[in-house]
């Protein structure tokens, strides 16, 4: 249950980016979250309005893209989808696999509402 503190540090990060670009506010924040990241996307969505209240990100939308869980087998080379508690190869069943995707917790993109742009409109 650390989603609120992660959300608060996310909002800090986003505000710094907004300030460094002279933005008026933040329109949207895009994250990519994998099932093995330890972060629950639903809880992030619940926490976001509280963490962003009173900041440049207050009116922004949090968009979470779910990363698929994919492993590559070191024995047979196959890339298959997996489950969080079963990361064995979907083809040969060996457990010597590497995670290709699934533990991401990445801030991908921020959309800013910029002062210059407002002047253009």
């Amino acid at each position: 249950m650390h989603e609120l503190s992660i959300c608060q540090s996310l909002v800090d990060q986003v505000e710094q980016i907004a300030l460094s670009h002279g933005a008026k506010s933040v329109a949207s924040v895009n994250l990519k979250i994998g099932p093995l990241s330890g972060i629950e996307p639903t809880l992030m969505q619940h926490a976001y309005p509280y963490a962003s209240a009173g900041t440049l990100a207050a009116e922004s939308t949090l968009v979470i893209e779910l990363a698929p869980l994919i492993v590559r087998c070191e024995i047979c080379g196959a890339e298959t989808e997996a489950q969080p508690n079963c990361l064995v190869c979907g083809v040969c069943g060996d457990y010597h696999t590497k995670l290709v995707s699934g533990d991401e917790m990445t801030l991908m993109r921020v959309e800013l509402i910029t002062l210059e742009a407002r002047n253009d409109v």
Partner: peptide
């Protein structure tokens, strides 16, 4: 009026 910034 919006600017997209890639962060990663």
């Amino acid at each position: 009026g919006t600017t997209a910034v890639a962060v990663l």
